Amino acid sequence: MELIVARNRDDLAKARGGGDVALVPTMGALHEGHRSLIRLARSRADQVVVSVFVNPLQFGPHEDFSRYPRTFEADLDVCRAEGVDVVFHPSAEDMYHPGRQVSLLSGRMGEIVEGASRPGHFDGVLTVVLKLLNLVQPRVAVFGQKDAQQLALIRRMVADLDVPVEIVGAPTVREPDGLALSSRNRYLSADDRQVALALSRALRAGAAERTPAAVRAAAGEVLAAAGPRLDLDYLVLVDPATFTEVGEEHAGEAVLAVAARIGTTRLIDNVTLTLNPA
Rank of each mutant, 00 (worst) to 15 (best):
M1I: 09
E2K: 12
E2I: 08
L3C: 10
N8P: 00
D10N: 11
D10K: 13
D11N: 11
L12H: 11
K14F: 15
A15V: 11
R16L: 15
G19L: 05
L23P: 05
T26F: 09
M27Y: 10
G28W: 07
G28D: 13
L30V: 03
R35Y: 00
R35N: 05
L37Y: 00
A41H: 06
A41K: 08
R42M: 07
D46R: 15
D46K: 14
V49T: 11
V50Q: 03
S51R: 04
V52Q: 02
V52N: 09
V54I: 14
N55H: 13
P56N: 09
L57K: 05
L57E: 06
Q58N: 05
H62E: 15
E63L: 01
F65Q: 09
S66F: 01
R67I: 10
E73W: 05
D75P: 08
D75R: 10
V78S: 07
V78Q: 07
V78F: 09
V78G: 06
E82T: 06
V84K: 08
V87C: 10
V87R: 07
V87T: 10
H89N: 15
A92G: 13
E93S: 11
H97C: 14
P98W: 02
Q101D: 15
Q101K: 15
S103V: 12
M109Y: 07
G110W: 08
I112K: 14
I112E: 12
R118S: 05
P119W: 08
P119D: 10
G120L: 12
G120Y: 08
G124F: 09
T127G: 03
K131M: 12
K131N: 11
V136Y: 05
V136E: 06
P138E: 06
V140G: 08
G144C: 01
Q145L: 06
Q145W: 00
D147E: 11
L151M: 10
L151H: 06
M157D: 06
A159W: 01
V163H: 06
P164Q: 11
P164G: 04
V165Y: 06
P171Y: 00
P171G: 08
T172G: 09
T172K: 08
R174E: 13
R174I: 12
E175K: 12
P176V: 05
P176R: 07
A180W: 14
R186K: 03
R186D: 12
S189C: 04
A190V: 08
D191T: 14
D192L: 00
R193G: 14
Q194A: 13
A198S: 14
R201D: 13
E209M: 15
T211M: 05
T211E: 14
P212D: 08
A213C: 03
A214D: 10
A214E: 11
V215N: 01
A218G: 00
A219G: 03
G220R: 04
G220S: 14
L223T: 04
P228K: 07
L230S: 04
L230D: 00
D231R: 14
D233V: 07
Y234I: 00
L235V: 07
V236L: 14
L237F: 00
D239V: 09
P240E: 09
P240V: 05
A241Q: 13
A241T: 07
T244S: 13
E249A: 15
A251R: 13
G252S: 01
A257S: 12
A259F: 02
A260R: 01
I262C: 14
G263E: 02
T265G: 01
L267F: 06
D269S: 11
N270F: 01
V271N: 02
V271F: 02
T272R: 15
N276S: 03
